[in-house]
Design a protein around this nucleic acid. Structure first.
Lengths: 148, 148
DNA sequence: ACGAGAATGTTGGTTGAACCAACGTTGGTG
DNA sequence: CACCAACGTTGGTTCAACCAACATTCTCGT
């Protein structure tokens, strides 16, 4: 024999939490590799997507929308600002806030990321026919909507 | 308003990789909290389960079965050995190896963990009726079987 | 029989995601 | 005006998942 010498324990094989975890791990590996082609990570994509869809906003508001913690948001904005994919400007109406605005380069990059990500999703879901993909999306959506 | 001020971006809401991730995060939070009641973590459960189902084995073999890295296995075995839930003994037939054996206390603890975990799965899947739960398990199984 | 290469346990890292606490600044409200 | 909340920021922590290197031990081909 040259391979894993047997299956994982029965208890683990069908445990929903573990299956979900394992699937997420696979998805993340594929997605990270895809976004890595552009030198970015998941946080960056989430932030650019939020900016493009909802327009300029404060870091705190963006954090609320994307689920990114305030402190992690700082670093994420720093990264993208360095690459000129967004701009950070003080809010004159509320001097506590920074207003974050996506740049033209940011929009272009986002379009590129969308393409990379679509391919990644397709790879992730490749064993499932379209109906099953939608089915999976529905089931997961019900789960995440119910909790939190 | 006092709440999240709007939904997450459309791009993110239905992205399969992100849904899977989010679901895994929810599952992990629930499972970690459950196992935490026994002062243990997921690695510990996986190891005890593998030991109980397949009998004594070397650390490397256990790592292969559970997907735990050799180096992480060391710490996991250390933890469980300290609590006397398993025993680590040199293999006389191969002096590179340690043979890990679950103890009676380990079996009892595993039974306890099984109960905690069953409740956790139930909480995780609570929004889904039984047929959908099985459906989800099938879909995820197809995904993880295909990759890896 | 011997030497090369593989497997094993172990140490000591690194990374990314997800958190949390504290602080100074600034806004809003009683 | 006093108090409290929100904001950005710094500087952590935890856990899972890795990887590289090393000494010891085994196996296999020649």
């Amino acid at each position: 024999m040259d391979t894993p010498e047997g299956p994982p324990p029965q208890r683990l094989r069908t445990l929903p939490s573990r299956l979900t975890n394992h699937a997420a791990q696979i998805a993340n590996r594929i997605v990270d590799q895809a976004l890595g082609q552009a030198g970015l990570r998941r946080y960056h994509y989430a932030l650019l997507a939020a900016l493009e869809e909802y327009g300029p906003a404060s870091q705190a508001a963006l954090g609320r929308r994307t689920g990114i913690d305030r402190s992690d948001m700082v670093a994420t904005v720093n990264d993208l600002a360095e690459r000129q994919l967004l701009e950070r400007a003080p809010d004159p109406d509320d001097r506590r806030r920074n207003i974050i605005t996506i740049t033209e380069a940011g929009r272009n990059q986002l379009t590129h990321l969308d393409r990379l990500l679509a391919a990644a999703q397709d790879e992730f879901l490749s064993p499932l026919p379209p109906a099953d993909r939608q089915n999976l999306i529905d089931l997961l959506t019900r789960l995440v909507d119910h909790h939190g």
